[in-house]
Amino acid sequence: MPQNSTRRSTKQISGEDIVVETAWLYYQDGLNQSDIASRLQVSRATVVNYLQEARERGYIHTKLSPEAFNTHRAAVALCERYGLKAAYIMPDGTGGMDGQASRIIRGAADWLPSLLEPGDRLGVAWGKTIYDVAEQLEQTVIADLTVMQLVGSMATPYGFSADVCSSNVARKFSAKCINLHVPAILSSAQIAATLRAETLIANQLDAISHCNKTLFAVGSCLPDSHVASSGVATQKELQDYIAKGAVGVLCGRFIDANGDPVSGPLDDRMMGIELDMLRHRDMGILVSIGADRVPAAVAALKGGYATHVVTNQSCAAAMMELG
């Protein structure tokens, strides 16, 4: 792009070119909007419109450095409390719960590519949080990356079934995808055992057991939690686990306040990775949204499932207090 000070009319630059020219002058040459308006002989409002159009077309990508979120006091304190390698703490903002959730999702999507390396085997959990992170990921190529579905699928009305979550993450990274071609929960332990013995399923289960990094959220044990609303557990089964000390759900498995597995009626019917296989991986990336999930998040931290956490300041403070 030209960088001299010669004034050029919009008659000489038109259509898509003037949008790119405006973006270059603003972001690369550092001119303010008034200077650009004078340079291009247009109004300042027109410059604003050109910059907005450049953003909408995807010409402009702006990100804050990860250091803005993982080196301040709240992040350092959370890492020290739970022995984490890193925490990415977003400011709460003023947009209410939806705005906070949006920030955490965007933060996780911005941070995730920098945490992955060529040859990684990334295990991906399921749920709305992980689905939303996948939607926000920018297209990035990571060589020889394999994305693996950690738990079987459910016919959920929400659109964020496990196979969709893993497939979307793989698509954004141009990665190989290993999906688990079974339901998350079966009607009997016998059917589940038979399926686990099938060569195709056995190979898929073996593959996901060798993931070296994981991306997950932890659900609550509230009556309206995804584990109940998606049909994985009935309300009676959910209450049975709660009575045994369950405070959270990770990949369809229940954990107590220390992160230890809670046994119950679903265990032998569940198709997916075992909790012990999720512990102490090279990297476990927990995306935690909402005060109602803080007890579950703390349980996951205590249980050794996470090395990295993405959340916001209020949730981080609640995790510190509960811990």
Rank of each mutant, 00 (worst) to 15 (best):
H72C: 08
H61M: 08
H72M: 10
A77I: 05
I60L: 13
S43C: 00
A68Q: 12
F69G: 01
A86L: 09
Y82V: 04
A87E: 05
D92W: 08
E67D: 15
A87R: 02
T62M: 13
V48S: 14
G83H: 11
K63T: 14
E80N: 14
F69H: 05
K63L: 13
Q41V: 11
L40C: 05
R55D: 08
L51H: 01
K63R: 15
D92Q: 08
R81M: 13
Y50V: 00
D92E: 14
Q52A: 10
T46Q: 11
S43W: 00
L51N: 01
Y82A: 05
A77R: 14
R81V: 11
Y88T: 04
L64A: 14
E53Q: 12
N49V: 01
G95P: 00
L78K: 02
H61Y: 10
M90V: 04
E80R: 15
A75S: 14
A87D: 05
Y82W: 05
A68S: 12
G58D: 02
A68N: 11
T62W: 07
L51P: 00
K85T: 15
F69S: 03
I60G: 03
A77C: 07
N49T: 06
L51E: 02
R55S: 07
G58V: 07
A45I: 09
V42N: 10
E56A: 10
N70E: 11
P66F: 02
E80W: 06
N70T: 03
V42Y: 10
K85V: 11
A77S: 14
A87S: 13
E56L: 10
N49R: 15
T46H: 03
D92M: 09
R55M: 06
I89E: 03
Y59P: 01
G58Y: 04
R55W: 04
Q52R: 13
G83E: 12
A68D: 09
R73Q: 14
A45F: 02
G83D: 11
R44N: 08
A68T: 14
R73T: 13
Y59I: 06
I60E: 09
C79Y: 09
A74L: 15
E80P: 00
L40D: 04
G83F: 11
L40G: 02
N70F: 02
L84T: 06
G58N: 05
T94P: 00
N49G: 03
N70V: 01
A54C: 03
K63I: 09
Y88H: 14
L78T: 01
T71G: 04
I60C: 07
P66E: 04
S65Y: 03
R73K: 13
V42L: 12
Y82E: 07
N70W: 04
A45R: 07
V76R: 11
L84N: 06
R73A: 15
N49S: 13
A45L: 10
D92H: 07
A87V: 07
D92C: 11
R39S: 06
C79G: 08
D92Y: 09
M90T: 05
V42S: 12
L64G: 10
S43Y: 00
H72E: 13
L84A: 06
R55N: 07
T94L: 12
